[in-house]
Amino acid sequence: MFGLKSDWSLDIKTRYFSLGDYAGGEARWCPGCGDHGILTVVQRICRDKQISPEKTVAVSGIGCSSRLPHYMGTYGFHGLHGRALPLACGIKSRRPELDIWVATGDGDCYSIGAGHWIHAVRYNMNMTVLVFDNSVYGLTKKQTSPTTPIGYKTNTHPEGAVLEAHNPLTTTLGIANVSFVAQTVDWNPNHLYATIKAAHDHKGFSLVNIIQRCPVFLPNFFQDYQDDPGKILLLTHEKGIPLEDKFARLFPNQKEHDPANMVDAYDIASAQNSLPIGLLYHNPAVPCYEDISSAGKDIGMEEKLAGIEKAFDQFAI
């Protein structure tokens, strides 16, 4: 599909990026970890969309998820626990032309970084935010995360988690300026690809909650869903996540959901004992903060000097 245009004439690009151009260091996640699949999909989308690696920044916080930038061939910023979003927003603020990916996790985003999550949704800056939601703290070895189900035993709650799990979808849907909320699972590469691609295509803050397996601390935790796709609710719609029929057919449990419908989105997200995947909500019309924050970034030196002189004059006596 590359190199030739549809009319069979040659499309000669000065640079063509292959998957290798998006590859960084060798991924060090555990064998069987869902993160490997997410990384591969991100690299494929970059390749398929021919995004310049030097104009791309993979930003992350701390945790297993947040190792992703190290495995990318783009620029990367492996920041602080919970703080990927302020960094990503700062990078974007005055350089809106950069392509920003954020890799974060259920602990990084929904717990220690929860304040930034809420506000980053409000800023609605154009970036693709992938939350690797494995319902546990992995890097620090099996502590309760905000999405750990109540009763599940961890090292911090050996008798079982004591609090109801947090629902990141309903929370995100409730934030002002929310513009793209989707959910997918790491073990279905087609849906994963289609969802993340749709998120990347959206101009605005696209949050993808990725149900992700941790084979070490939550082995077989999602096995039921893997074995019986009927336990998953596939959201379909012409404006939703485009999934080829041959892949969609694997999901006996489907629901047509218009992603413009916030009320339905909330109902789907809050339903008990349900794992919806697909596009819950999409509003392409929400303004992006970088359109405000980048104002004046290209102002010339003469104009700057004149502005400074004028400022001095305001205080002159």
């Binding site: 920041g79 960094l87 700062g90 990078i91 974007k92 603020s93 304040g115 930034h116 700057k304 004028k310």
Partner: peptide, 25 residues
């Protein structure tokens, strides 16, 4: 007037993170 921008962040941590992100870029 000189093309600059004041970002009021959601908290002190985000403020410095935002500045660091911008500086990284």
């Amino acid at each position: 007037t000189v093309g600059g921008f004041v970002h009021q962040a959601e908290d002190e941590i985000a403020a410095v993170g935002f500045a660091i992100g911008s500086s990284f870029a």
